[in-house]
Write a protein that binds this DNA or RNA. Structure first.
Length: 205
DNA sequence: CCCTGATTCGC
DNA sequence: GCGAATCAGG
């Protein structure tokens, strides 16, 4: 692969959008992130912040949640999966096959019943977000005692992103235990996050 | 360990 | 010009 005008254009666009070199490399294909970085430098657009001779204003302000607004009754959908990066427009990634599970991305649903809801974007329909098997619950409680208590920046694609605690306080962290098979959560949290629709029917009484 | 960008240097 | 290897950091 070579740096055609088109590819360079994509590079420029994504770089200016704040995409990481590896993401850009993934998008372009046929190049490594090193290649992307090298090209970026050769193009002389290393400093993303369009500031000539500028300094670094912000460092990792990026991902901070929209606001600690407790007013808006919106359950946070996804606590920003990957590392710390500003915008995440529309990376064409695998849709993640979610069969007959419940909500695609429940985030702070069941666990905190008294806690306030963080704040996020969408996710209005919260269907069968209740009634988890006692086993699953026990498992979760157990697991949360061993949680790695990762911060937002420490989350990766293979760490459990289940939020624990109150986002508005210091008592907030992410599970961080190893998640598997492309799931966003560890086994225990997957258990409470994705419920078969049959569960409720079963427990109906 | 996962990830980031920055630099170097043989090609 | 290119990018793998390496470096420096989170």
């Amino acid at each position: 692969m070579s740096w055609t005008d088109e590819r360079v254009e994509t590079l420029k666009r994504m770089w200016s959008e704040g995409q990481s070199a590896s993401q850009i490399a993934k998008e372009l294909g046929g190049v490594t992130r090193n290649a992307v970085i090298g090209k970026v430098h050769r193009l002389g657009l290393s400093n993303r912040v369009g500031g000539a001779g500028g300094k670094e204003d912000e460092e990792e302000v990026a991902v901070e949640a929209p606001a600690p607004r407790v007013e808006t009754p919106r359950p946070a959908p996804e606590p920003a999966p990957r590392a710390a990066e500003p915008p995440r427009p529309a990376p064409p990634e695998r849709p993640a096959p979610q069969p007959a599970a419940a909500a695609p991305a429940p985030s702070a649903p069941i666990p905190l019943r008294k806690a306030i809801v963080p704040a996020g974007q969408p996710l209005p329909p919260q269907p069968s977000a209740n009634e988890i098997s006692p086993e699953a619950l026990a498992s979760v409680r157990e697991v949360e005692k061993r949680a790695r208590k990762l911060t937002l920046m420490e989350l990766t694609e293979r760490t459990c992103k289940w939020p624990i605690g109150d986002p508005a306080t210091e008592d907030f962290w992410f599970c961080g235990l190893p998640s598997q098979a492309g799931k966003p959560y560890c086994d225990a949290h997957v258990g409470v996050a994705f419920q078969p629709m049959s569960a409720r029917r079963d427990r109906r009484r």
